[in-house]
């Protein structure tokens, strides 16, 4: 290959993400990250966290990830890929604010 020939790079989509979930009852897993398939729904890992941390989330709990644009709410019914998540994913999970005013 000559120095001027463009280099072709094959980008292989990652098949896994590494997930850590934080709540005010603790972290899941307790330390580090779990490796899970990118096409798993986020709710699967949230369900594991609820069991492990002995918490009873209600329908008004929300999952957020911190990104360049600040905190972003994700949809637990969608996969990590559908939520545009890759690499190490720090999910914060807890109750949405109650009504005020």
């Amino acid at each position: 290959m000559s120095a001027n020939e463009p280099q072709v790079v094959n980008v292989v989509p990652e098949k896994f993400v590494e997930v850590s979930i934080s709540t005010t009852a603790g972290f899941y897993p307790a330390e580090g990250y779990d490796q899970v398939p990118v096409d798993d729904k986020v709710e699967l890992q949230l369900e594991k966290a609820a069991r492990d941390l002995d918490i009873k989330p209600t329908s008004d709990w929300i999952a957020n990830v911190n990104g360049p644009e600040g905190l972003r709410e994700i949809d637990p019914m969608k996969t990590y890929m559908e939520n545009r998540l890759s690499g190490q994913v720090d999910i914060d999970w807890g109750p949405k604010e109650g009504g005020g005013g």
Binding site: T23, T24, A25, I55, K56, P57, T58, D60, I62, N64, G70, L71, G94, P95, K96, E97, G98, G100
Partner: peptide, 20 residues
Amino acid sequence: NQENYTLGGILTQLWNAWQK
């Protein structure tokens, strides 16, 4: 006695409100 109204739950709700 609800999960959302522990001290951590209340703080989390306030934090989520502040984020908006």
